[in-house]
């Protein structure tokens, strides 16, 4: 089997197993107590971790554009507007 097909098949099986594994794991964890509180907080913590990884992989331009996007998001809570502001800011900063 050539390299691309090997990668496609193994990655497809592994990725689906991970996704369905999380679905099944979620059904097994308790509905109250510390584990439930942890699971309820997990989405916010994952997203803020993702934002941290993305910004730390960049430099000063990304940090300034990130601050501008945060300011727009904070006051408007508007997704498209925040995206437009962030993209425009990084575009202008890199000119």
């Amino acid at each position: 089997m050539s390299d691309p097909w090997f990668v496609i098949v193994v990655l497809a099986i592994a990725t689906f197993s991970i996704r369905i594994g999380g679905v099944l794991l979620g059904q097994k964890l308790p509905n109250t107590g510390p584990w439930a509180r942890a699971l309820n907080s997990l989405p916010g913590c994952l997203i803020i971790s993702l934002v941290s990884v993305l910004l730390l992989s960049g430099g000063p331009n990304e940090w300034i554009a990130g601050s501008i996007a945060l300011a727009v998001a904070w006051f408007t809570k508007n997704l498209p507007l925040t995206m437009v502001a962030g993209i425009a800011a990084i575009y202008l900063l890199r000119l």
């Binding site: 907080s41 989405p43 916010g44 913590c45 997203i47 803020i48 993702l50 934002v51 993305l54 910004l55 960049g58 990304e62 554009a65 990130g66 996007a69 945060l70 727009v72 998001a73 904070w74 809570k77 508007n78 997704l79 925040t82 995206m83 502001a85 962030g86 993209i87 425009a88 800011a89 990084i90 575009y91 890199r94």
Partner: peptide, 28 residues
């Protein structure tokens, strides 16, 4: 095109929406 920043900005907006106040401060 600056599009590499589209998802960073989107996740910043989504993090803002998920912010539930002081109880999120320490975990975040």
């Amino acid at each position: 095109l600056g599009m590499d920043f589209a998802f960073t900005a989107a996740f910043i907006a989504i993090a803002r929406s998920l912010w539930r106040g002081n109880k999120d401060l320490l975990p975040w």
